[in-house]
Amino acid sequence: IQIFEKGDFSGQMYETTEDCPSIMEQFHMREIHSCKVLEGVWIFYELPNYRGRQYLLDKKEYRKPIDWGAASPAVQSFRRI
């Protein structure tokens, strides 16, 4: 998965294949504004440590949070399923 600090795949980008319990600790990001799921299925969580509201992401590109069903870019953790 590739995660971006700004919408439309702009700003700082990080790519990982590992679960992330805290985007702040692992990537020094506060929010995720866009992402590209390159393979597999992932779950975004609103809070750290896989808690809070969940969003299921299939293999595709998400230009903004509304594309994965979120009203805001408040994603604090994610993991692959």
Rank of each mutant, 00 (worst) to 15 (best):
Q2G: 12
Q2F: 15
Q2L: 09
Q2I: 15
Q2A: 05
I3M: 08
I3S: 00
I3N: 01
F4A: 02
F4I: 00
F4Q: 00
E5S: 07
E5P: 09
E5Q: 15
E5T: 05
E5R: 09
K6P: 00
K6F: 14
K6M: 13
K6D: 11
G7R: 13
D8R: 14
D8A: 12
D8T: 13
F9A: 06
S10K: 10
S10E: 11
S10P: 01
G11C: 13
G11H: 08
Q12G: 12
Q12C: 05
Q12T: 13
Q12E: 06
Y14T: 14
Y14W: 06
Y14N: 13
Y14P: 00
Y14H: 12
T16Y: 11
T16I: 06
T16L: 13
T16R: 10
T17Q: 09
T17K: 14
E18W: 11
E18P: 06
D19A: 09
D19H: 15
C20A: 09
C20G: 02
C20S: 06
C20E: 04
P21A: 07
P21T: 09
P21G: 10
P21N: 08
S22F: 07
S22K: 13
S22C: 11
I23V: 10
I23Y: 11
M24S: 05
M24C: 08
Q26V: 10
Q26M: 07
F27C: 05
F27I: 14
F27P: 10
F27N: 04
H28A: 13
H28F: 15
M29N: 15
M29H: 15
M29P: 13
M29K: 09
R30Q: 14
R30D: 10
E31M: 07
E31S: 07
I32R: 00
I32Y: 02
I32Q: 01
H33Y: 11
S34R: 01
C35N: 01
C35E: 00
C35K: 00
C35F: 15
C35I: 07
K36Y: 13
V37Q: 05
V37K: 12
V37L: 11
V37W: 01
V37Y: 01
L38Y: 05
L38A: 12
E39F: 08
E39V: 13
E39S: 12
E39Q: 07
E39Y: 07
G40C: 03
G40S: 06
G40P: 08
V41S: 08
V41M: 12
V41F: 10
V41G: 14
W42E: 02
W42Q: 00
W42S: 00
W42L: 03
I43K: 04
F44G: 11
F44T: 03
F44C: 12
Y45W: 06
Y45H: 04
Y45P: 00
E46D: 01
E46A: 08
L47G: 06
L47R: 10
P48Q: 09
P48L: 02
N49F: 09
N49P: 01
N49V: 03
Y50P: 00
Y50Q: 02
R51H: 11
G52C: 01
G52W: 00
G52D: 01
G52E: 00
R53G: 07
R53P: 03
R53M: 13
R53T: 08
Q54F: 04
Q54G: 06
Y55G: 01
Y55L: 06
Y55E: 02
L56C: 04
L57D: 02
L57F: 02
L57C: 02
D58R: 12
D58F: 05
K59C: 05
K59E: 02
K60Y: 15
E61A: 01
E61D: 06
K64I: 02
K64Y: 08
K64G: 12
P65W: 08
P65Q: 12
I66A: 07
I66R: 12
I66G: 05
D67A: 15
D67K: 04
D67Y: 04
D67G: 05
W68C: 08
W68K: 06
A70G: 14
A70K: 15
A71Y: 03
A71K: 15
A71D: 02
A71E: 12
S72D: 05
S72M: 04
S72E: 15
S72Q: 14
S72H: 02
P73T: 05
A74W: 04
A74T: 03
V75T: 03
V75Y: 04
Q76V: 11
S77L: 00
F78Q: 02
F78R: 00
F78M: 15
F78L: 13
R79W: 02
R79M: 02
R79G: 02
R79I: 02
R80A: 02
R80C: 13
R80T: 02
I81F: 15
